[in-house]
Amino acid sequence: MEIRKYLAEAIGTFWLTFAGCGSAVIAAGFPQVGIGLLGVALAFGLTVLTMAYSIGHISGCHLNPAVTVGLAAGGRFPAKDIVPYIVAQVVGAIVASAVLYAIARGAPDFDLAKGFAANGYGDHSPGHYTLLSGLIAEVVLTMMFLFIIMGATHGKAPVGFAPIAIGLGLTLIHLVGIPITNTSVNPARSTGPALFVGGWALAQLWLFWVAPLIGGVLGGILYRWLSEEPAALVTGIPRAPAH
Rank of each mutant, 00 (worst) to 15 (best):
residue 143 M to L: 13
residue 75 G to I: 07
residue 243 H to P: 14
residue 157 A to G: 03
residue 3 I to A: 13
residue 19 A to H: 03
residue 64 N to C: 11
residue 196 F to N: 08
residue 195 L to D: 10
residue 124 H to G: 10
residue 143 M to S: 13
residue 210 V to C: 09
residue 130 T to F: 01
residue 109 D to E: 14
residue 158 P to D: 01
residue 157 A to C: 09
residue 145 F to G: 07
residue 123 D to K: 03
residue 76 R to H: 04
residue 33 V to H: 12
residue 76 R to D: 04
residue 189 R to A: 03
residue 35 I to D: 10
residue 44 F to C: 04
residue 118 A to M: 05
residue 97 S to Q: 02
residue 119 N to R: 00
residue 93 A to I: 03
residue 184 S to W: 00
residue 32 Q to L: 13
residue 211 A to S: 06
residue 204 Q to M: 04
residue 111 D to C: 10
residue 130 T to S: 15
residue 62 H to E: 07
residue 18 F to L: 15
residue 180 I to C: 00
residue 173 I to N: 06
residue 136 I to G: 12
residue 119 N to S: 03
residue 40 V to Q: 09
residue 154 H to G: 05
residue 88 A to V: 03
residue 82 I to W: 14
residue 150 M to V: 12
residue 98 A to Y: 10
residue 93 A to K: 01
residue 205 L to P: 14
residue 129 Y to N: 00
residue 56 G to W: 02
residue 243 H to N: 15
residue 105 R to I: 15
residue 153 T to K: 11
residue 28 A to Y: 02
residue 133 S to T: 02
residue 11 I to P: 08
residue 2 E to S: 06
residue 227 S to Y: 04
residue 154 H to W: 05
residue 180 I to W: 00
residue 228 E to P: 09
residue 68 T to R: 01
residue 241 P to S: 06
residue 91 V to P: 05
residue 221 I to K: 15
residue 226 L to P: 09
residue 58 I to D: 09
residue 241 P to A: 08
residue 104 A to R: 06
residue 108 P to T: 06
residue 129 Y to M: 00
residue 169 G to Q: 15
residue 4 R to T: 10
residue 142 T to A: 11
residue 88 A to N: 03
residue 138 E to W: 00
residue 19 A to L: 10
residue 26 I to P: 02
residue 121 Y to Q: 01
residue 36 G to K: 01
residue 212 P to Y: 08
residue 17 T to N: 10
residue 122 G to Q: 03
residue 58 I to M: 14
residue 9 E to K: 07
residue 190 S to D: 04
residue 70 G to L: 11
residue 149 I to E: 04
residue 108 P to W: 04
residue 21 C to S: 14
residue 167 G to K: 00
residue 69 V to E: 00
residue 225 W to S: 14
residue 229 E to L: 14
residue 39 G to D: 01
residue 30 F to T: 04
residue 91 V to S: 11
residue 83 V to S: 07
residue 76 R to I: 02
residue 70 G to W: 11
residue 158 P to W: 08
residue 152 A to H: 15
residue 166 I to R: 02
residue 103 I to N: 05
residue 242 A to E: 02
residue 223 Y to D: 11
residue 18 F to N: 05
residue 112 L to R: 08
residue 46 L to I: 11
residue 203 A to N: 15
residue 124 H to N: 11
residue 195 L to Y: 07
residue 228 E to Y: 08
residue 31 P to D: 14
residue 201 A to I: 07
residue 148 I to N: 09
residue 101 Y to C: 09
residue 92 G to F: 07
residue 32 Q to T: 14
residue 12 G to V: 02
residue 3 I to L: 12
residue 125 S to G: 06
residue 184 S to K: 01
residue 51 M to L: 06
residue 217 V to E: 14
residue 141 L to D: 00
residue 18 F to W: 13
residue 68 T to Y: 03
residue 32 Q to V: 12
residue 210 V to S: 09
residue 135 L to H: 05
residue 229 E to T: 15
residue 241 P to W: 12
residue 183 T to E: 06
residue 25 V to I: 11
residue 110 F to L: 08
residue 93 A to M: 01
residue 74 G to E: 11
residue 42 L to Q: 13
residue 161 F to R: 02
residue 136 I to D: 09
residue 126 P to W: 00
residue 112 L to G: 08
residue 60 G to Y: 14
residue 47 T to Q: 03
residue 127 G to M: 00
residue 29 G to W: 08
residue 156 K to Q: 03
residue 237 I to V: 15
residue 113 A to Q: 02
residue 15 W to T: 13
residue 118 A to R: 05
residue 96 A to G: 12
residue 107 A to Q: 12
residue 36 G to I: 10
residue 81 D to I: 01
residue 31 P to N: 13
residue 197 V to E: 08
residue 73 A to W: 05
